[in-house]
Design a protein around this nucleic acid. Structure first.
Length: 243
DNA sequence: ATACATGTTGGAGC
DNA sequence: GGCTCCAACATGTA
């Protein structure tokens, strides 16, 4: 569930509830969500991996972390973290992080950093990257302040596609690889969205959790990389290490 | 079936 | 202050 494109799908699913009154809020969240009872959903937005359910001045921010899930007009066995009751409809969230945000979201979020946003600004990402020359490429792609919405799958697939080894230093990348990294982060995220909608995401993975390189067929290397300590899958033959 | 994993946060320790 | 490490959270999949 967690990466940016999946949140876009969820946003689309929740859009029909815009304008609806939330009659009751229940669940085991410790946030004081019941104060929102009686308010109408003004807008459903996302920022990277954040789902934003906007009311008047308050917004519910949901983050699905690793195990979060949701059901619309259905329930799971486990207790809901948050349930929004809208008359006879209900939206249930499980095992996710809930936070209430007060005030203007523009003060909280840099929309230009969200790879799924129409306001995504590749030049801004490039500028951020130039400020972090010692960062490993794998870490940079997972930086939510630069590539909001990019997760470990997108990271591995992007690096495979642009033929850059995950431990490459940003400052050592040739200009065309740096721009390819920024461009592909967005391009593959939208490809992810299309494949996810069609239910064919996994079968289109070229590197993530794969055994063999999709190009040269040699065994892929699986290695925990970078300060973020996430699993990388890469081809030691076709992906270049820039040091 | 045991371990790992689409992720983040807060606190400890240095 | 800033960095890294660790635990915690809680569930589907291999």
């Amino acid at each position: 569930m967690p990466e940016g494109p999946s949140l876009v799908i969820l946003k689309e699913q929740l859009k029909p509830f815009t304008g609806r009154k939330v009659t009751e809020l229940t669940g085991n969240t410790t946030e004081p969500v019941s104060e929102l009872a009686g308010e109408r959903i003004k807008e459903i937005r996302t920022w990277g991996k954040h789902l934003l359910i906007c009311f008047g001045t308050t917004t519910i921010r949901m983050h699905f972390l690793l195990f979060g899930s949701y059901r619309i007009n259905e329930r799971r066995e486990s207790p809901a973290r948050l349930s929004l009751h809208l008359g006879k409809d209900e939206i249930n969230f499980y095992a996710c992080s809930v936070k209430l945000i007060q005030g203007d979201l523009d003060e909280v979020y840099d929309w230009e950093a969200d790879v799924m946003s129409e306001r995504w600004k590749p030049r801004k990402a490039t500028i951020h990257l130039r400020d972090a020359p010692k960062e490993q490429a794998a870490d940079a792609l997972l930086d939510q302040d630069i590539f909001s919405g990019v997760g470990n799958i997108i990271k591995n697939e992007v690096l495979f596609r642009i033929r850059v080894q995950p431990e490459s230093r940003i400052g050592a990348l040739p200009t065309d690889r740096l721009s390819a990294l920024v461009r592909e982060a967005r391009k593959y995220s939208f490809q992810f969205l299309e494949w996810k909608k069609k239910g064919v995401l996994k079968k289109n993975w070229l590197a993530h959790r794969k055994q063999l390189c999709a190009r040269c067929k040699i065994p892929l290397t699986k290695k925990v990389t970078g300060k973020r300590k996430r699993q990388s899958y890469f081809c030691r033959n076709c992906q270049v290490l820039y040091k």
